[in-house]
C-alpha cells in the first residue's frame, strides 16, 4: 500500500517534470526564428467582425419611417427587404448596384476552426452509432451457431482490418459513392463506421466469449431461447466488460475522422490546413487543433468512465 506522503511526493515530482518539459517547449519556441501570433487565431474560431449585407440587384435604396431598408430593383423584381441590421451604409434614395454593401450587422459567428470542430464531432458521433450497430451485429454473427454467419463475419473483419483506412475512404468515396451516388459526408460516415465496426465486432465477440458458458446454460435451462438468453443474460454482462476497450476504439474513431479531409470534408483537420494558409500561423493552428481533438476525446473518455462506474453496481 502507498503511504499518503509518498503519493504527494509523486504528485510533486510529476508537476516538476511537467513544468520542465513545458518550459523546454516554450523556450524552444522562443529560440527559433518564428513570431508567435496567437491573437490571429481568434477570428478563425469565433468571428466578431460585423458582417456586410450586400445588394442582390441594381436598384434604389428606400428607408421607410420604421427604419426598414429595402432596395427597389430597377427591373420589376420583388424588392430586397432588410429587416435586421445594426449600421446603415446606404441612405434613402441612393442608387445601388449589385454587390454594394448596403448595411452591416454586428454580432459573431463561428469561424472555420469551430465549424470544422463541429463537423468532426458530427461525423464521429454518427459514425460511432453505425459502428456500434455493425459491430454488435457482426460480433453476434461471429459467435452464432450457423457456419455461414461465422464465415461472413470473419470475412468482414479480416478484409476491413487488413486494409488501410485511407484506402477504404477512397474506395468508398470514389467507387461505392459513384455507384450509389453518395455525397462526401455520407461516404465519410460510411467508411468510418465500416472500419470501426470491424474492430467493435471483435471487441463484442471477445466480450460475449468472456461470459462463462454456465450463464448461457442457466438461461437456457430456465426456458429462455437463444435470443432471449443473449439479450437478457449474456449481452448485459458482455457490454460491461467491453466498455474499456470500446472507449479506446471510439477515441480512435474520433482521431481517424481526420482522414476524411482527403475527400474534401472540411473537418477540424482540413479547417486547420485552410486556416494555416490564411493566417500564416501554422504552429499556433496545429497546437490549437491538437488541443481541440484532446478535448473531444477526453470528454468521451470521461463519459464512458462514468458509465462504467454506474454499471459496476453489481460488482
Amino acid at each position: 500500500m502507498q503511504t499518503q506522503s509518498s503519493r504527494w511526493l509523486g504528485h510533486g515530482l510529476y508537476l516538476v517534470i511537467m513544468a520542465v518539459l513545458i518550459s523546454g517547449v516554450y523556450f524552444a519556441g522562443q529560440k527559433i526564428d518564428y513570431s508567435w501570433h496567437w491573437e490571429r487565431l481568434w477570428p478563425y474560431i469565433i468571428n466578431t467582425e460585423s458582417q456586410d449585407i450586400v445588394a442582390i440587384t441594381d436598384g434604389t435604396a428606400v428607408v421607410d419611417a420604421a427604419g426598414r431598408l429595402s432596395i427597389e430593383p430597377d427591373f420589376g423584381d420583388d424588392p430586397q427587404i432588410v429587416n435586421v441590421y445594426d449600421t446603415l451604409v446606404s441612405r434613402h434614395g441612393d442608387l445601388i448596384f449589385q454587390g454594394d454593401t448596403i448595411a452591416r450587422i454586428d454580432g459573431w459567428r463561428f469561424g472555420p476552426i469551430a465549424e470544422g470542430l463541429w463537423v468532426t464531432i458530427k461525423i464521429s458521433f454518427i459514425s460511432l452509432i453505425f459502428a456500434v450497430l455493425l459491430g454488435v451485429m457482426f460480433g453476434l454473427m461471429r459467435v452464432a451457431h450457423g457456419q455461414v454467419w461465422r464465415n461472413l463475419a470473419v470475412t468482414y473483419v479480416e478484409v476491413i482490418r487488413g486494409t488501410p483506412l485511407l484506402v477504404q475512404i477512397f474506395i468508398v468515396y470514389f467507387f461505392i459513392g459513384t455507384v450509389f451516388d453518395l455525397d462526401r459526408f455520407t461516404a465519410g460516415v460510411a467508411a468510418l463506421s465500416i472500419f470501426t465496426g470491424a474492430y467493435v465486432a471483435e471487441i463484442v465477440r471477445a466480450g460475449i466469449q468472456s461470459v462463462p458458458v454456465g450463464q448461457m446454460e442457466a438461461a437456457r435451462s430456465l426456458g429462455m431461447n437463444y435470443v432471449e438468453a443473449m439479450a437478457y443474460v449474456i449481452m448485459p454482462q458482455a457490454i460491461k466488460r467491453t466498455l474499456p476497450p470500446l472507449a479506446g476504439q471510439f477515441i480512435n474513431l474520433i482521431k481517424d475522422s481526420s482522414l476524411v479531409s482527403v475527400i474534401s470534408i472540411t473537418d477540424l483537420t482540413k479547417a486547420g490546413r485552410e486556416v494555416v494558409s490564411g493566417s500564416f500561423a501554422p504552429f499556433e493552428v496545429w497546437f490549437t487543433v491538437a488541443v481541440l481533438y484532446l478535448v473531444v476525446t477526453g470528454g468521451l473518455s470521461l463519459l464512458i468512465q462514468r458509465l462504467e462506474k454506474r454499471l459496476s453496481a453489481s460488482d
Binding site: G214, E217, A218, S221, L222, G223, P236, S314
Partner: peptide, 18 residues
C-alpha cells in the same frame, strides 16, 4: 426446459441482477 429446472455446481447466478 420450462418444466425441467436445473441447479448447477457453480450456481451460475446472473451477476448483473440482484
Amino acid at each position: 426446459r420450462e418444466e425441467v429446472g436445473m441447479v448447477f455446481q457453480a450456481f451460475n447466478l446472473f451477476p448483473h441482477k440482484t
